[in-house]
Design a protein around this nucleic acid. Structure first.
Length: 274
DNA sequence: TCCCAGGCTCTCT
DNA sequence: AGAGAGCATGGG
């Protein structure tokens, strides 16, 4: 892994198993847009980050190495050896194949509250519309700083109420969003508290929120709380289990990084269809 | 028009 | 405890 500052931009080269574009498209995050074949815009770590794919490597525009290492290094999970993790799945042909398709995927370490609300919105929904609703929520209640809207706080959302969320057209999910935001704002649910909990405790805590079941909670634990063993089962992963594992599958056999295998499977199966 | 989308809640057995 | 309808909205 090598960093080189080029004027205002930061070039990252000599790194394996890292493709931020694929990582964005694999369904784990929603606040990004493709600008061209070689350029993406991502909103994370409280700012906008434009990423160019170049001959020499990944070019992060308008950021220096110190700031990158403060936020995005961990956000992109660059300190982990994904090659080694993929090797640990070598006993399973299906996962190994899926890991080839998604070899550039990194599990992004996203903001827990944003992840919670985002995956509540994701239920019985499709990705383009999830992105649209989240963007509308940020524009409605987030804070603007030079054209970019931050993800709103729990207090702001709770204050808006179900009626206040009408413009984002989240449908029946509005009441769930409000329940989550209210519980977090009041302290009934503590993000910091969940950070310290075991997987099982954290899962139970998240499921106290209306509209949060096993699938949403596991996504939040995997993408927002760094529980890499969390294994969300959605319609696509269920399809994989039915298709390749005769309808039953025990994620525990995959070890502490089962969630990463899940992400390979999800991305691979989706890339087959559409 | 019907069906589906990174599901969950509620109700009825 | 397990199955099934209903849920808001928009795109194919």
């Amino acid at each position: 892994m090598r960093f080189r500052q080029i004027n205002n931009d930061l070039l990252l080269s000599e790194i394996n198993n890292f493709d931020p574009f694929v990582s964005c498209e694999c369904g784990q995050c929603f606040r990004f847009e493709q600008i061209s074949d070689s350029e993406y815009r991502l909103f994370a770590c409280g700012r906008e980050l434009v990423i160019d794919k170049t001959e020499e490597g990944w070019l992060f525009l308008n950021i220096d190495e110190a700031e990158f290492k403060e936020g995005f290094f961990d956000y992109f999970d660059l300190g982990r050896d994904y090659g080694e993790i993929i090797s640990s799945f070598s006993f399973d042909k299906t996962i190994s194949l899926a890991a080839q398709t998604g070899s550039g995927i990194r599990i992004f370490r996203q903001d827990p509250f944003e992840t919670l609300i985002s995956f509540i919105i994701s239920q019985n929904n499709n990705i383009p519309r999830i992105k649209k609703i989240i963007e509308a929520l940020c524009r409605l209640l987030g804070e603007e700083k030079n054209g970019f809207f931050s993800f709103p706080t729990a207090e702001k959302i709770a204050e808006a109420g179900i009626e206040g969320l009408a413009p984002i057209k989240s449908g029946f999910r509005a009441k769930y969003i409000i329940d989550a935001a209210s519980k977090v704002a009041s302290g009934e649910i503590s993000i910091e508290g969940i950070q310290k909990m075991s997987y099982a405790e954290a899962l139970a805590e998240l499921k106290k929120i209306k509209g949060v079941g096993d699938k949403v909670a596991n996504c939040v634990l995997l993408f927002g709380f760094g529980h890499y063993g969390a294994f969300p089962i959605d319609v696509w992963v269920k399809r994989v289990i039915d298709k390749y594992y005769n309808g039953s599958f025990d994620p525990q056999t995959l070890g502490e990084y089962a969630g990463i295998a899940q992400q390979y499977l999800f991305y691979h199966e989706r890339s087959l269809g559409d």
